[in-house]
Nucleic acid binder design. Structure first.
Lengths: 127, 127
DNA sequence: ACTGGACATCGACGAACTTCGATATGTCGG
DNA sequence: CCGACATATCGAAGTTCGTCGATGTCCAGT
């Protein structure tokens, strides 16, 4: 597992419409800088955390829960998967910076990290 | 391959802060509807197309290219992968609705589909 | 202390993904 | 028509991912 990134970092796709030296037909050699591999890797890790239907549903359920938080037991039945699997997905979302965990008593409550999704939104908008 | 979706469809994560019948401690049985499986599947498919560093770099390069379009030969060298691999990624991005292809002569030119990324941005913002 | 419950971790299996070389398709110039 | 080139498609190999059952850990009652 390529170890998901800690937090979604803000970076655009890097558009600026700057004129590039136009070669006649094709294959102009200078694209200056596209998007460095490291940045692409981090961004992809964030999107990867969102690239699963179960995880999107988990985010949705947490978001619409009272107090904007939900414990694992609230999440197992709606998604229809085993408890270890749900726990696994929640860990991925937490490691990626979209959820935060707070344990109270026997239960573990998950809630949305305030600006996380908005930051991803901004990334795509700036593209 | 789970056949990527045709176009990113607009759907929010479904937040509305509505009060749910509060059971005493935990595990309230009624979450009404989180996000139907089909919607989650489509959204996840779109994110999956963005969940790869190479594809993000391809989008970036295309976006900052002159005329906002680039042929495959422009893309192979920057990402440092084989031509079949680049072609493969471009197909995924095209099938997902982020790129469109137009063949002129021997070359295939790819450009961003106008509202595609913005639509994804909106999805996350509405969450 | 012991039992029961909530959650996390581990190990394993099948499916999906990324990548490549080889090959097919299609286009232009001679 | 033929050879050179730009892309796409086709297996195949290696890796990653999603899922589960079994197990470990921690907390609250009795």
């Amino acid at each position: 597992m390529t170890t998901f990134e800690l937090t979604p970092v803000g970076v655009g796709l890097g558009v600026d419409g700057g004129p590039v030296g136009s070669t006649g037909a094709c294959c102009s050699p200078l694209v200056t800088e596209p998007m460095d591999a490291a940045r692409a890797e981090r961004l992809a890790a964030s999107f990867k955390a969102l690239a699963d239907p179960t995880r999107l549903r988990l985010l949705s359920i947490v978001a619409k829960s009272e107090g904007e938080e939900a414990c694992v037991c609230d999440l197992i039945e709606p998604v229809g998967l085993s408890q270890p699997t749900v726990s696994h997905h929640l860990k991925i979302l937490t490691t990626a910076g979209f959820l935060e965990r707070s344990k109270r008593g026997t239960w573990a409550y998950y809630r949305l990290v305030p600006g996380a999704l908005d930051r991803m939104s901004q990334l795509l908008a700036d593209a």
